[in-house]
Design a protein around this nucleic acid. Sequence first.
DNA 1: GTCTATAGTCTGATAGAC
DNA 2: GTCTATCAGACTATAGAC
Lengths: 206, 206
Amino acid sequence: MAYRKTPAVQDRLAAAKDRLIQCATSVVADVGWANASVTAVAAAAGMSVGSVYQHFPSKGALAVEVFRRASAREVEVLGEVLRDGSGDAAERLACGVRVFARRALQHPGLAYALLAAPAEPALGEARSEFRRRYRAVFTDVVREGVAAGLFPQQDAEVTAAALTGAIGEVLVDPLSAPTGDAADHLVAELMAMSLRCAGAPSATTG
Amino acid sequence: MAYRKTPAVQDRLAAAKDRLIQCATSVVADVGWANASVTAVAAAAGMSVGSVYQHFPSKGALAVEVFRRASAREVEVLGEVLRDGSGDAAERLACGVRVFARRALQHPGLAYALLAAPAEPALGEARSEFRRRYRAVFTDVVREGVAAGLFPQQDAEVTAAALTGAIGEVLVDPLSAPTGDAADHLVAELMAMSLRCAGAPSATTG
DNA sequence: GTCTATAGTCTGATAGAC
DNA sequence: GTCTATCAGACTATAGAC
């Protein structure tokens, strides 16, 4: 008969699974989804291919989990800044964009994998959800700004989607990650563009 | 020894290749890149798998050609409106966005495949080029608007990239293609958002 | 028992014979 | 042009190490 796993065993399993996910994330950030074969991931995690399939039913499921964890972190960080930051809606929006951009520029491989890389088919749905969540957090700030008369009347959902796409596109294009002054310039322009996009008045003044 | 192909043969080959590309485009628009196997494409084109490889050296090459043709059409249409349309930069930008959006909403399957679908690894480069070209046409209008004092000072490249990403994201998300009034609303919001994004003054006024 | 290594099956891309 | 063989990579089954 089947015995319940002891806590110690459960912990060990969970730890191994965690490590597997982390290693897989590194591999993907390094070589992209296309080249992240199960064999390569297993090797990076120091385990056999068979063991990988003890943690995940398929390569796609592992990919989804890798994607979910990485993207959840980003959405969470952004959401905190947008919701709990200080200042009015425009200031929080600008701050959120800066944080998002800086994080992406620091981990370009991961950002590219999350935002734009040709991906496992299984990631289609996960990516959609990721974007929905980004929209949700942006939608809230935009709505707030409109309610406060800070932004003009607009469909907050559309603006939120636009911000999501715009920021992703700007950050991902130069596969060559800009550094130093170039990065600062990019972030500054991105913040200005986001404010204009929402219709913050300062945008047209300067 | 190898004889030069007669013109008649060349024409027949070119026609077959054309049909193959068109059929492949339909298949991709229907089932996405992931399910567009060479077998499926060959079947749709009424030829054998082996024949497909007489026209293209690899599946990736065929995918790139499908992508190139479809995206080139879109970029061209947009470019014409933005360059040769009537009115100032803001008016042409708004008009270009409307045209782009309407076309995408009419062919949602193809739009999704071009803009956002999980794709063949080989398409990574093609997609980058596609986006660079979008940026290029947007960059020109934005520059012109800035020069005319219509838009505020800004990095036109960044705004162009943002417009590319924003429009794509807004159009692609609701995999359920909006129809009738909903589509009109979406297009109108998209145009307003694009003008705000570039900093057109009317945007903050109403 | 759980992990590893390994050798198999299966699917789909690709090459080559016909 | 078609058909068949090969190859790669996802996935599975099994045997042995600890």
